[in-house]
Design a protein around this nucleic acid. Sequence first.
DNA 1: TTGACGTATGAAGACTTGTTCAGATGAGCC
DNA 2: GGCTCATCTGAACAAGTCTTCATACGTCAA
Lengths: 143, 143
Amino acid sequence: MTAMHPADADAGCGIRVVDADRVAVVRSALPEEERVAEASEVFSLLGDPGRLKLLVALLEGEMCVCDLAAACGQGESAVSHQLRLLRAHRVVTARRSGRMAYYRLADAHVRLLLDVTLAHLDHGEPGTARAVESTAASERAAS
Amino acid sequence: MTAMHPADADAGCGIRVVDADRVAVVRSALPEEERVAEASEVFSLLGDPGRLKLLVALLEGEMCVCDLAAACGQGESAVSHQLRLLRAHRVVTARRSGRMAYYRLADAHVRLLLDVTLAHLDHGEPGTARAVESTAASERAAS
DNA sequence: TTGACGTATGAAGACTTGTTCAGATGAGCC
DNA sequence: GGCTCATCTGAACAAGTCTTCATACGTCAA
């Protein structure tokens, strides 16, 4: 664990390393594999423009499939497929009323990510401080 | 724009709509197509476990390619490809020193997203309020 | 019950995306 | 110069993803 001269060291397996200390620190700071996978799945869900639009739309409150499709300019079947995916990951939940299905956001973390991102989009680059503000506000309102 | 009885209306094109008002509101609240695309691209970048690990690693400060590879348990070529992508999207920047290349986070928004997510991972579900706190703190420290 | 409707689902196809391997580039060292 | 090393790049393949079409399911109204 102590510092060694650069240019040689290994990090468990036999991999080339320059700054062994740094590598060790980062390694222990890195979340478990499984956590990273979880997080990246969530980001992946937000990584599709169609899905992202659906979720942003749902920030306004619950909506049925056909309204979501209309509001986001997508086919109803496509929307249904996406919602299915989002439901499987517990990002949204469905409430059924007769033959209608109303969807709403179900994940506080995702809501937070969306808020942060929207705030960022609003005022170009700077974003951070105000983003956090507006995020906290909308989070309060979202309970 | 005024309310009409449910079950029939259209939203520009000829699409079935239940709550025309809601659809109209959401439509105007939705960011421009282009903004949504930008945002979803960023999320997509965070949506790969390998890339996500690289970025989390870079939260600790700048690192060279081989150390990143070692710390994240990935091949150096793979890492280089990913960094290239991240660089193209201005999420990271490279500083060259001799034959080494040192990468660092270059996007405040991405850093914020990472912080929020890590905070969320730490204390399971609740997350929101404390996530914002810790996020703001780390943002201050990150300038 | 029958038909229309909103939603859900399965399968197929085109399209992305990530990894790997092989080789190229350019900096440092003898 | 010639060698090694860190990084980059291109091509190819495997794997995953999104959309579409067709169809199935449950609900409501007549």
